[in-house]
Amino acid sequence: NQASVVANQLIPINTALTLAMMRSEVVTPVGIPAEDIPRLVSMQVNRAVPLGTTLMPDMVKGYA
């Protein structure tokens, strides 16, 4: 099963992502692949992401 990127904390809108904000977890539906975590660092979210939410490509500016 593919691990996805999950929010490790509440991430406010327009926040630049850091490693501490993300974790890898096997979830359904599948979100951004966990191997993309290094690429996500310093990218901004375009909405508030609650703790435990799977990051989807449309939630991260410049990812999709």
Rank of each mutant, 00 (worst) to 15 (best):
N1K: 12
I37F: 04
M22Y: 02
I13N: 07
N14D: 14
N46M: 14
A7I: 08
P29H: 15
E35V: 10
E35Q: 11
A3V: 10
Y63Q: 06
I13H: 14
T53Y: 13
V41R: 09
M21Q: 05
T18F: 04
S42H: 08
S24F: 11
R47F: 13
V5C: 03
V41C: 03
R47L: 15
G62E: 13
M59T: 07
S4M: 03
P50M: 15
A16H: 09
L19M: 11
M21W: 03
V49K: 00
R47E: 08
D36A: 10
S24M: 10
T18E: 08
M22L: 13
Q44T: 08
G31T: 01
S4E: 00
I11K: 00
S4Y: 04
I13C: 04
K61R: 14
L10G: 15
L10W: 15
T15M: 09
V26L: 10
D58T: 07
I13G: 12
V45M: 06
Q2P: 13
I13S: 08
P29L: 05
A7S: 12
S24G: 09
I37W: 04
V49L: 12
E35I: 15
D58K: 08
V27P: 02
N14W: 12
P50T: 05
G52E: 04
A16T: 07
S24Q: 07
L40Y: 03
S24D: 11
V41E: 05
T28H: 14
L17P: 02
A16C: 03
D58S: 13
A3L: 13
S4R: 02
P33Q: 10
T15H: 09
P38K: 15
A3C: 03
M56G: 06
T15F: 10
M56S: 15
A48T: 13
L40I: 13
S24V: 10
I32R: 00
A16K: 11
T28R: 06
D36K: 05
T15D: 04
N14F: 05
L17M: 06
Y63V: 06
V5T: 11
Q44F: 13
R39S: 14
L19A: 14
Y63D: 04
T54W: 02
Q9L: 10
I11M: 06
T53I: 14
N8Y: 08
L51M: 13
L17N: 01
P50H: 08
T54R: 05
A16Q: 14
P29R: 06
V60N: 01
P33E: 04
L17H: 01
V49R: 04
R39H: 08
P50L: 11
A34T: 08
T53F: 10
G52R: 05
I32W: 02
P50Q: 05
V26Y: 12
M59S: 07
N1M: 15
A34W: 09
E35H: 07
R47V: 09
P29K: 09
G62Q: 12
I11Y: 01
P57I: 07
I37D: 01
A64T: 14
S42F: 08
A48Y: 10
V27I: 11
R39W: 06
N8E: 10
R47D: 07
L55D: 01
L40G: 01
G62S: 13
L51F: 13
R47K: 13
N46T: 11
A3K: 15
P33D: 10
E25L: 11
G52A: 07
T15S: 12
P12H: 05
T15L: 05
K61V: 08
P33M: 05
M43T: 05
T53L: 06
T15K: 05
N46L: 09
I32E: 00
P38F: 12
D58Q: 11
T15R: 06
M43S: 07
I32F: 03
P50A: 13
Q2W: 11
Q9N: 11
L10M: 14
T28Q: 10
V49I: 12
L10P: 15
L19I: 12
M21H: 05
